[in-house]
């Protein structure tokens, strides 16, 4: 029997959803191997149970918490897709400002009308079996994981830095050119796509385990940032982890 697959989204930009539809060449083949039972952006049908569930976006309101518990109960395997779901992503930046002030900035005197929580990764609320990192989620990574799960294998994980991939890709090092690059502490798996086109890594795949934060801040201050600016740069996609 083909595995029943579902997709759900929480607070995010839907870029990860879109990135899945962007496998134009492989899409029909992938679909042939699974039974797609729920994907609200693209279809009307729903289902009660799922073998493999992909979840995009962060948890950021009381109703999200309820929904993710319900989804987890009905899912055999749960995969977090993209930075928002894996580590809070860009949404978590709101956490580092007082919530009162954030609400007031956006809704003025109507600030109490809408319930909100700090932005959290999916794993803060329920168990997550696998993850695909990146903002948007890295496509080759997703493809590998998808194939592995459909074939009942364990997907690969990455716990080395983007710098390693830069070397493999023979990119010119941007730090030595004076740019503010987070490659030394960011998890690989994207094939160093940003440095490959002349743009510094901004840490969208989250950090390697046991990263040396002080050393990274020091490198960044050597490039001309203040300590505050360096921490802010690390927080861009990782404010949930780098809270202060």
């Amino acid at each position: 029997m083909k595995p029943k697959v579902a997709f759900f989204d929480f607070t995010g930009c839907e870029g990860c959803q879109l990135n899945k539809l962007n496998f134009e060449n492989e899409l029909l083949d992938l679909l042939a191997h699974v039974d797609l039972v729920e994907f609200r952006e693209a279809m009307d049908e729903t289902s009660d149970e799922y073998d493999i569930t992909f979840v995009e976006g962060s948890i950021s309101s009381p109703s999200c918490v309820e929904r993710i518990h319900d989804i987890r109960r009905r899912s055999k395997i749960l995969v977090a897709l993209g930075a928002c779901a894996v580590n809070g992503g860009i949404n978590a930046m709101k956490n580092i400002q007082p919530i009162e002030q954030v609400r007031e900035t956006v809704y003025g005197q109507d600030k109490y009308r809408f319930a909100t929580l700090p932005a959290m990764p999916i794993s803060a609320i329920v168990a997550v079996d696998y993850e695909v990192r990146g903002c948007p989620m890295s496509q080759p990574d997703f493809l590998q994981l998808f194939k592995a799960l459909v074939m009942g294998k364990t997907p690969p994980t990455y716990n080395y830095a983007v710098c390693v991939e830069c070397k493999l890709e023979e990119n010119e090092c941007l730090l030595t050119k004076g740019q503010i690059c987070l490659g030394p502490v960011t998890r690989a798996g994207c094939q160093a796509i940003c440095p490959g086109v002349g743009q510094a890594c901004i840490g969208c795949r989250g950090f390697v385990e046991g990263m040396n934060r002080e050393a990274m801040v020091e490198i960044l201050t050597e490039k001309g940032l203040s300590v505050d600016e360096a921490v802010k740069r690390l927080q861009l996609f990782n404010a949930y982890e780098v809270a202060v």
Binding site: T11, C13, G15, S60, S61, S63, C64, G89, I90, N91, M93, K94, Q97, Q101, V102, R103, T105, V106, Y107, F114, T116, C135, I202, E229, K232, R233, L236
Partner: peptide, 24 residues
């Protein structure tokens, strides 16, 4: 949809970061 508070996130950010954030 839960609100996302982008304008608040932009506060204090450098001009090189604005487009990276608003793209999301």
């Amino acid at each position: 949809e839960p609100p996302r508070f982008f304008e608040a996130m932009l506060k204090g950010r450098s001009f090189t970061e604005a487009a990276i954030i608003t793209s999301r």
